[in-house]
Design a protein around this nucleic acid. Sequence first.
RNA 1: GGGGACGUAGUUCAGCCUGGUUAGAACGCCGGCCUGUCACGCCGGAGGUCGCGGGUUCAAAUCCCGUCGUCCCCGCCA
Length: 577
Amino acid sequence: MHRTHTCGDIDVSLVNSKVLVSGWVVSIREMGKVNFIILRDRYGEVQVVFENKKPDFSLGYVVKVEGTVKKRPPEGVNPRMKSGEVEIYAESWEILNKSRPLPFLPEDDIDVFEETRLKHRIVDLRRPKMQRNFILRHEIILFIRNYMSSLGFLELETPILTKSTPEGARDFIVPSRIHKGKFYALPQSPQLYKQILMAAGFDKYFQIARCFRDEDLRADRQPEFTQLDVEMSFVSDIEDILKTIEPLIIEIFNRFANANLSSPLPRLSYLECMDMYGSDKPDLRYSIRFLDWTERFKGRGINIVDRVLENGGKVKVLRVPVKLSRGQIDKLLDDYKFMFARIENGKPSGNLAKFLNEEEIRENEGNTIFLFAGKGLNFLETLGDFRDRICKEFLKPEREWSALWVKDFPLFQWNEEEKRIEPAHHIFTSPYEEDMIYIKRLKESLVEQDEEGLKEISLKIRGKQYDLVINGVELGSGSIRVHNPELQKELLRIIGLSDEQIQERFGFLINSLEMGAPPHGGIALGIDRIVAMCAGENSIREVILFPKSTSGMALFENAPSEVDKSQLDELGICIKT
RNA sequence: GGGGACGUAGUUCAGCCUGGUUAGAACGCCGGCCUGUCACGCCGGAGGUCGCGGGUUCAAAUCCCGUCGUCCCCGCCA
């Protein structure tokens, strides 16, 4: 027998009981005739006393100790420890396994390079903080499973070895031994399968799905990641999905992060978002937003503004409720072009000061006003960058959590480098019925190769798409799908695929749509990001057991690695050098 | 693909700018002392491919070139 109790079980209720515990030695304090160690397991820590005995332990050893639980003397109580009122008086012990000296101690406050942590991940994972993160991850996923199941969703497993569909991200590919020269691909997401499952009549599907994308990494991006994948049938309206999923999201964040979110979450259209925040994932913990002062500033005599307005541009103003120093503003001017005014004691200063009227001065006491003039999407995105920077550098969030839905994204966007139309989200998103007329015009522009027309019209077609944004981070995205095979083919043609390519790449989807696919839609939520956020972590690597490094290396097991020549021969592959 | 930061003992760092004894510190490790520690304390000891390769030099951790790795950002990615 190895234990009667876990380390976390030991408390005052066990005083005078005989216990047997096993765990890792995480602290040794030898005083001569009396020696102390701290024993830890997943459930907690407990102090063991060796009186007139000295065990041959080192940090990291796995040991078993039998003894009696005693109350500590009053001066020996450790209030920072959960079991700090008691300790185990060791009577016998055994070393279950030795440990060579650890590269670092498995404590929460370590100061170690992430490279070292990842190389010795098991030591890293022993840290209580990491254990908490993965317990939280388990609890969130369990909660999701129970929740979805209670709503009648079925968890169905879709293939990992799938077909390469080179739209979107780069695929990881897997060579086929039996069919030399052919390849499977790992799924970027179960997108096509889940739509097919709707055609198959499963009605409500979900999956905690692993997804793979062969793109460069970031702090919040890994080549393999986990999403909650959801799809449901007989929905045509965005609200059908949002109303189903929103309570789940709110409950996750309220339960696991004390977020205090409440239904309904705000819903903003993509255009509203860009207009007010310059971003399609605004951080609404900060309330500042851009005001449109185009009409107000027409003909006030500001040359730059007049010139931009002649070109059909707009005047956007951000009122920041703090007074920035001249130095701070100069630093911003290094990166952005704007006019500004600071209003203090009724007196405006700055190059915008003399153009403000009485009312504007009165309304902005104590504020710093930034004025931008420009045109187009790039202009708005720059404003969004600016707002982010102001918030980060000069403002405090007004609330801890903010969640919203952003919806009605443009279905297409113009790819300037490749001079073609591409899907903004993915090509299976349904357009709004009332925007269908533009699809016809888009086709005409394609035939005429009218680039300006394509740019203009492509922005007018709104897709039934929605993103979930929390604290400025996109946590999920979904859409009502196209269930009409003819329309689906039409959309694929618009992004430049020939009928042959459509048949070869998406034939299995089209076939499914042709055999009675119900109207359907769904969403996918990033589990790693959700868990990281609930855990208060900035990087999803803190909630992934064995994450890859920035260059895609698995530092613990050292992958990717070379394979035997015989393995390559079997696959009919030779390596170019 | 591009930009920035970092790489010296098991770990985290100092030393590098301004080249020159035996490359230091803290924690960890090993040995010893200590009956109430919890960052225990005290004494002693072991431990180094200064990421790797090349160059400059009488001499390189230090200067130069290249390369590899890690982290952050842009591109890319929903």
